[in-house]
Simulated scan of single mutants.
Amino acid sequence: MKDNSAFAKANPASKKISVAFYNLENLFDTQDDPETLDDDFTAEGYKNWNSKRYTKKLNKLSRVISEIGHEETNSSPSIIGVAEVENKAVLQKLIETENLEDLGYDIVHYDSPDERGIDVGLLYLKEDFEVIDSETVSVYLESEYGERDYTRDILHVTGNLMGVRTHILVNHWPSRRSGVEESQPKRITAAQKNRMIIERIEAEEPEARIIVMGDFNDGPHNESIKNHLVQKDLYNPMVFLNTRYEGSLNHDFEWYLFDQIILSTNFMRMHENTLRYDKSDIYNKHHLTEFKGRFKGNPFRTYAGRRYLGGYSDHFPVYCIFKHL
């Protein structure tokens, strides 16, 4: 059997990397922002959020981030998209924790118009990814009363991933809180906005490498993903990961895979491909789960309603492994 570690040492250009996505479940600081609905996450708020709990959450999340894909790559993720972060400052605090401070992460983040003040962002290892450009793209939605319904922007980052020009779209689509059927058109609109970005990219770069990631609040088989986002130019490797026994989140004792990473098909090309897709997985190690009780095996979350549990997140991260040849 070939010794892969010896092979890698003999061929320094040969390397495996991971790309991940993680919904961080309400990563708020402790300060009240008068422009957003963040009052719950203050010391006087509904959840009694304070510096001790904030620091504990940062340390827990940073531990997870440092671990994702490490067994396969011997490294933390080259890129990790995140959702449910209040601002750039909380991401800066995150990468300054003991678990991440020496790894060389940097941040791409923009404030978006979401009423709760939660955004998406991108963390990246400067050694593996060079940012060329970034932008946010708004998703225009309307409420049933014809008023604008503000949601998270799409983050579009262009850069060189292991020297390969790559476009990354980070998403957090509208929730199902008002009902699955009632809210579905909003997620279809978000999917269509992603298609507009993708088609604009492909018009300028016909062989563009594109990674679409996010918490889509829909699974691989839902209409927004299957019929509106994933066309012949994209491949969804996550379609095989969602089973009755596993997913990235659990609701009413049913598993869902709302967190996904979708790839342009050129990542699958077998020959003359310096950055090739290898595998996907859900990072659901035992220490990220509830250890006992009715919810044993579910993601160990920070809060259940207003009750503080002290966990990580109500979502598991997902990730893809790539071979850099």
Score class of each variant (00 low, 15 high):
Lys2Gly: 04
Ser5Tyr: 14
Ala10Cys: 02
Ala10Gln: 14
Asn11Arg: 04
Lys16Thr: 01
Ser18Gln: 07
Val19Asp: 09
Ala20Val: 05
Tyr22Pro: 10
Phe28Trp: 02
Thr30Gln: 01
Glu35Tyr: 07
Asp39Leu: 03
Asp40Arg: 06
Gly45Phe: 12
Ser51Ile: 02
Ser51Gly: 00
Lys56Ser: 01
Asn59Ser: 00
Asn59Asp: 05
Arg63Ser: 03
Ile65Arg: 11
Ser66Leu: 06
Glu71Arg: 05
Asn74Phe: 05
Ser75Gly: 05
Ser75Thr: 06
Ser75Trp: 06
Ser75Gln: 13
Ile79Glu: 08
Gly81Trp: 09
Val82Thr: 14
Val85Leu: 04
Thr97Pro: 05
Glu98Asn: 06
Leu103Ala: 06
Val108Arg: 07
Asp111Ala: 03
Pro113Arg: 08
Arg116Met: 05
Arg116Phe: 07
Gly117Cys: 09
Val120Glu: 12
Leu122Val: 11
Tyr124Thr: 04
Leu125Phe: 02
Leu125Pro: 03
Asp128Ile: 00
Glu130Leu: 10
Glu144Leu: 08
Tyr145Gln: 07
Arg148Phe: 09
Arg152Leu: 07
Gly159Trp: 06
His167Lys: 04
His167Glu: 07
Trp173Val: 15
Ser175Trp: 10
Ser175His: 10
Ile188Asn: 14
Ala190His: 15
Ala191Ile: 15
Ile198Leu: 10
Ile198Tyr: 12
Glu199Gln: 15
Glu199Trp: 08
Arg200Asn: 15
Ile201Arg: 03
Glu202Leu: 12
Ala203Gln: 13
Glu205Leu: 02
Pro206Cys: 04
Glu207Ala: 03
Ala208Arg: 01
Arg209Cys: 00
Ile210Gln: 02
Asn217Cys: 13
Asn217Trp: 13
Asp218Asn: 15
Gly219Gln: 04
His221Gln: 13
Ser224Leu: 14
Lys226Glu: 15
Asn227Ser: 14
Pro237Ala: 11
Val239Met: 13
Val239Tyr: 14
Leu241Glu: 09
Arg244Gly: 13
Arg244Asn: 14
Glu246Met: 11
Gly247Tyr: 12
Ser248Asn: 11
Asp252Val: 10
Asp252Arg: 15
Phe253Met: 05
Glu254Ser: 13
Trp255Arg: 12
Leu257Cys: 11
Leu257Ala: 08
Phe258Val: 07
Asp259Leu: 12
Gln260Arg: 06
Ile261Ala: 03
Ile261Tyr: 07
Leu263Ile: 10
Leu263Asn: 05
Ser264Ile: 01
Thr265Glu: 12
Thr265Lys: 14
Thr265Cys: 01
Asn266Glu: 07
Met270Thr: 05
His271Leu: 08
Glu272Phe: 15
Leu275Gln: 02
Leu275Lys: 01
Arg276Ala: 06
Tyr277Thr: 00
Tyr277Gln: 00
Tyr277Val: 00
Asp278Tyr: 01
Asp278Glu: 05
Lys279Trp: 01
Lys279His: 03
Ser280Asn: 11
Lys285Asn: 03
Leu288Lys: 13
Thr289His: 08
Lys292His: 00
Arg294Pro: 04
Gly297Glu: 02
Pro299Met: 13
Pro299Tyr: 12
Arg301Gln: 14
Tyr303Asn: 08
Gly311Gln: 07
Ser313Ile: 09
Cys320Gly: 01
